[in-house]
C-alpha cells in the first residue's frame, strides 16, 4: 500500500476524529498493546494500532471501509490497558459513526451495520426492544432467514421469546430524541 499525504485532507480528518473523540491521536506511540489484547484481532483487516496510525495519516478511505471498525466488540480491553490512556475503543465508535453518517456500506460487514440500524429502529418505534421483531426484521434485511432458526423452538418453549413486546407509553418523547439526534 502506498499513501500520498494531502496535508489539508489529513488535518481535516484528524480534527474531525479528535473533536468527536475528545482525545489526541498524537498521544498514541504505537506500542501495540491494544492489538495484543484485542479478542477479535484475528478477524480484522487492520490491527487497532494500525487504525490509529492510519487515521493520523489521514487515510480516510481505507479506515472507514475497514472491517476492523465494525468487528470491534467494544470490550474496552484496549482502552483499559493502554499505557497512554488513549481512547482506543472510543476511536472505533467515532469511526463507525463517521462511516454511518457518510453512508458508507461495508462490503464485508454489512450485517453488523444492518443490525445496529434495525436495533435503533426498534427502539425508535417501541422505546424498548421487542426481541422477536428485532430478530425477524434483521433476518429479513440480511436475507439470513434460517440462521439460528434451530434455536427458536426451544427458546419459545423455555419462555425466552415473547410473542408481544412492551412499549414506552410516552412514545413521543422517544420520537423527539430520535428527531433531535438521528
Amino acid at each position: 500500500m502506498k499513501t500520498i499525504i494531502n496535508e489539508q485532507d489529513r488535518r481535516n480528518f484528524v480534527s474531525q476524529v479528535e473533536t468527536m473523540l475528545h482525545d489526541k491521536l498524537a498521544k498514541c506511540y504505537q506500542c501495540g498493546k491494544c492489538s495484543a489484547g484485542c479478542p477479535v484481532n484475528f478477524e480484522m483487516d487492520y490491527t487497532p494500532n494500525q487504525i490509529i496510525k492510519m487515521t493520523e495519516l489521514g487515510m480516510q478511505d481505507p479506515v472507514l471501509n475497514s472491517k476492523t471498525i465494525w468487528l470491534c466488540v467494544s470490550c474496552n480491553t484496549c482502552s483499559t490497558r493502554c499505557p497512554k490512556g488513549f481512547e482506543v475503543a472510543g476511536i472505533m465508535d467515532v469511526l463507525r459513526e463517521i462511516a454511518t453518517r457518510k453512508g458508507i456500506e461495508s462490503k464485508t460487514e454489512k450485517e453488523i451495520q444492518v443490525f445496529h440500524k434495525v436495533f435503533l429502529d426498534n427502539v425508535k418505534s417501541n422505546g424498548r426492544i421487542f426481541e422477536l421483531e428485532l430478530v425477524g426484521k434483521y433476518r429479513l434485511k440480511t436475507k439470513r432467514l434460517f440462521r439460528d432458526m434451530f434455536l427458536a423452538p426451544k427458546m419459545i418453549e423455555k419462555g425466552k421469546l415473547r410473542m408481544s413486546g412492551d412499549k414506552v407509553s410516552a412514545i413521543n418523547s422517544i420520537a423527539k430524541i430520535f428527531r433531535d439526534f438521528e
Binding site: G32, S35, A36, C38, N41
Partner: peptide, 12 residues
C-alpha cells in the same frame, strides 16, 4: 503470553 508484533501487524 498474548502480545503483538506491530511490524508484521500480528497478534502473537
Amino acid at each position: 503470553i498474548r502480545g503483538a508484533d506491530t511490524l508484521s501487524g500480528n497478534q502473537v
